[in-house]
Write a protein that binds this DNA or RNA. Structure first.
Lengths: 344, 344
DNA sequence: GATGTTTTCGAAATCGTTTTCGTTTGATAA
DNA sequence: TTATCAAACGAAAACGATTTCGAAAACATC
């Protein structure tokens, strides 16, 4: 049994003894086809189980109904939530999603951008690696008039639409909460030095201290490189050894906060009585570990879904006016108070 | 500044006053182009920054250099590892990956399969939802001669290539380990009734008991529906209430095992002294929680990478012989003994 | 010089769909 | 009867790359 080839417009046309043109028009709802002919075409298409050859359609229309998303890493709860949001919304609108990762490396990111461009995707959603700012390949996306949305890890130097949270405010809220719980000496295990995210969260931390007239001590801030559990553990050890009177920790992300908790648990330092801890991102495990971790909810799914919707708007805007919208959507975040920071 | 249009073979041909044919051949390394002409073409292509229009190439060659993968859910450590493996290997070979999820629903899965077929992907990798077996849409993939690889959650009724672990053996090893640690009465919080995975792990559990002449008590086995943390917690409570002398738990997956640990911790039941616990999958958090969870490593990344390689083989086989390979790769698993089951 | 052989090139068809621009037909109006 | 107009359909070009097949040119052989 060999593979019979797919039915085409031509086949339908031949069966009905009409032209390919009319068949195409009938199926696409053009008005210059009589109702009778249209119905005959539709019936025949049904009968033959016709589906348009999407390769031909893509080629003809220059649209792929495919978008690309580039993120630092797939295996990461926040980003996989983002992907999920993008996919779900894209799917609803009949778009496909191609996922590429940069592994936080610039060269990789460049390559991925080029791949997506060569693949002629209809649009690109991207979360930058830690090193990126206003690289050439980002400008290329802009120049080539490809619809483009940056999410979460953005660059202020690139002029395009963005979906973000207010990292500074979120961090302010987190640290403010710790202070309200009575913390006097709060350490911050921050992210790497370059990404805007980490900078903004650090600024939020400082702002909260300033707001309560708590002096800022740079020695209480240590930047992660890999942003991992182990760093949380190590840096807490380092800080607690030098400053045993630290009574609060604000971590760049929950995974790091779990490292903090592990060290404190090991040292039998009571959480939250002696030291209160708050993380960032609301990683789904945060509610499972002991003590349950306070955190900032960072709505990954919503961010992904919004990013797609915004990209869609961009696509339409560029098709009609030829101009970008350059709209920024800022999503809300809340402090989730759980056991690790809750003092009666 | 409006978007100048992309250079084409025709443009190169015009600039050099030769035919499109020759340009194409020169760039593709055909032998019937003189070295001189070839170099002129290549230089001009460079100069114009020519890249082939992939839409046209796809259309002409009927290949998309894109594969699809359908999994139950993206936000899941094991599956996101699988995706990572697929993407990484695919990328190395210049393939794109379109990711779709079934959310464990059959209708969804059907839709996704149809979408991928209509998109004319070069091949499909799939992990089945809990309800699927030998659905029509799976047969359609086979009939349409689309290269196809099933991974992890497979169906024995579909004749195609597969990448799996030996779930029964892995489960046997896990329970065998518990018994060797002195457990006499082991409960199993198993997966749903339908998926082959869950069945095989349950069979492995039974086989291990039988091997040590431990009677099998069906009341010590409770199937999950959602396979989540909460079910782990609840079912442990249920079992421990009725059978307080249970001294071992084997969970379908680590997340469930964490639920088990949480309940035991709350009840101040000592792990592993009173009750030993082992999970499945080696979720990366398993080494972080307290006590560290023993588990079976389930190599998601490798599975994804192998699946792509196997799919590639299938693609080649189908192109040359027109036949499927129907090869099954079984990956190794090991018992990772950690604190939750380690008795001196 | 005639014949055969290789090297190098290009015309044209092809993939399937979409869209522009006619053409035909029949009906209506003048 | 002729001009006008709308409705219904189709011919053909287009998208850009690939490939088949044949032709021309260059070279070799006798």
């Amino acid at each position: 049994m060999k593979q019979q080839k797919e039915p085409t417009l031509k086949l339908i046309a031949e069966k009905l003894n009409i032209s390919v043109t009319t068949v195409s028009k009938a199926l696409k709802g053009y008005s210059d086809v009589s109702a009778v002919t249209r119905q005959r075409v539709i019936d025949m298409a049904d009968q033959l189980n016709y589906t348009p050859n999407s390769l031909a359609v893509n080629f003809r229309t220059k649209e792929t109904r495919t978008i690309g998303i580039i993120i630092p890493e797939v295996v990461h709860h926040f980003f996989s939530s983002v992907i999920n949001g993008v996919i779900e919304e894209a799917e609803r609108q009949n778009y496909f999603v191609i996922i590429l990762q940069s592994n936080e490396k610039k060269e990789m990111e460049k390559r991925q951008v080029e791949l997506l461009i060569s693949k002629k995707v209809d649009g690109i959603i991207m979360s930058l690696s830690n090193q990126s700012n206003d690289e050439d390949y980002l400008k290329m996306i802009i120049n080539k008039k490809i619809p483009f949305v940056l999410i979460d890890k953005i660059s202020k130097l690139i002029d395009c639409s963005k979906v973000v949270i207010d990292d500074k405010k979120a961090a302010f809220d987190a640290v403010n909460h710790l202070i309200n719980m009575g913390c006097k000496k709060i350490a911050h295990i921050r992210g790497p030095l370059n990404p805007q995210n980490a900078i903004d969260r650090f600024l939020g931390y400082k702002a909260a201290l300033a707001h309560h007239n708590i002096p800022f001590n740079p020695e209480l801030v240590i930047p992660c490189e890999r942003v991992c559990y182990e760093e949380g553990y190590e840096f807490t050890k380092k800080i607690m050894t030098k400053y045993p009177d630290v009574d609060g920790f604000f971590a760049i992300t929950d995974l790091v906060a779990v490292g903090i908790l592990t060290y404190l648990n090991e040292q039998q330092i009571k959480v939250p009585e002696q030291v209160a801890v708050i993380g960032f991102s609301n990683w789904f495990m945060s509610g499972v570990i002991s003590p349950k971790l306070s955190t900032i909810d960072q709505p990954g799914f919503t961010m992904g879904a919004q990013a797609f919707l915004l990209l869609k708007e961009e696509m339409e805007s560029m098709k009609t006016t030829g101009e970008r919208l350059c709209k920024t959507i800022t999503l809300n975040t809340d402090v989730l108070v759980r056991a690790s920071s809750k003092r009666n």
